[in-house]
């Protein structure tokens, strides 16, 4: 029963994909001047095949991935402890609230020129940009998470004499994880966006820069955009996979209820 259903879903998705591919191919073959810039799917796939053989794509992909991962990890290393500290006392939470709200609402791409000016088109610049922008969702969600830990759990840990660091590690940490992960999901997407943005706008080496450089070669450009799309999907998928593994305890009771 479940199996047939899953098969149906898969089949449906495959058909959608095929229909889209066919549409693309038709559009690419159109003689209309307005869509002449769109290459045929077959041409894009051929370009993609060529690219996969070269080291240029691998290098660019590697650069984009490292920048994103580095930025995201640093966001975690900064955001979670900072969130813990700001959540420690209501006064801290309330007084920091305004600054955080301001910082996280600055449109992310608007600050690229500033960082470019300060650091030039380097990976360091892209990583700094990511920290400046994607740390906020993690920070905010950590604060929410910590403040929403059931006080009864904390009392229990306290009554058994668990020292502060053990309470943080074994009670506050896991209990606030569902909130923190929401932040991580947002930050991961944001980090990739910023990496590609910095590469595209500021010329930091990576996939975005390659896309920019291949503007005159539409086949290649489309192939690279496809790679960027797949990268985004893979990242989102990886975060969700980790989340559903770590937070099974959180999702299952909800699903059962």
């Amino acid at each position: 029963m479940l199996r047939t259903r899953r098969r149906q879903v898969l089949l449906g998705r495959l058909l959608t994909l095929l229909a889209l591919a066919a549409g693309w191919q038709v559009l690419g073959s159109s003689p209309d001047a307005d869509v002449k810039a769109v290459p045929k799917l077959s041409a894009v796939l051929a370009a993609l095949g060529d690219e996969l053989g070269t080291s240029a794509l691998a290098t660019a992909l590697g650069e984009t991935l490292t920048t994103t991962a580095l930025g995201l990890v640093l966001c975690l290393l900064v955001g979670i402890p900072a969130g813990l500290i700001l959540a420690a006392h209501p006064a801290l939470t309330i007084s920091s609230r305004f600054v955080i709200d301001f910082c996280r609402t600055v449109p992310p791409l608007a600050v690229i020129p500033l960082f470019l000016l300060l650091m030039g088109p380097t990976q360091r610049m892209a990583v700094s940009l990511i920290i400046a922008v994607s740390v906020w969702p993690i920070l905010l969600q950590t604060i929410h998470g910590v403040r929403n830990v059931d006080p009864e759990l904390l009392s229990t840990a306290r009554s058994f004499g668990l020292p502060l660091w053990r309470r943080l590690l074994f009670v506050v940490g896991p209990a606030s994880m569902p909130y923190v992960f929401t932040g991580i999901r947002i930050s991961a997407t944001l980090s990739l966006l910023l990496t590609i943005g910095a590469e595209l706008i500021a010329g930091v080496p990576g996939l975005g820069k390659e896309i920019l450089l291949s503007q005159s070669v539409p086949d290649r450009m489309f192939a690279l955009i496809t790679v960027a799309g797949v990268l985004g999907m893979a990242l989102a998928f990886a975060v969700t996979a980790i989340e559903s593994r770590l937070l099974a305890w959180h999702h299952v009771p909800r699903a059962a209820a």
């Binding site: 009864e152 009554s159 058994f160 209990a175 959180h250």
Partner: peptide
Amino acid sequence: APPATLALVSQDYGRTLMPW
């Protein structure tokens, strides 16, 4: 503060178990 020699079974027992 809670002394180490003491243990409590709380009335709200369900909320005292770590769900993870």
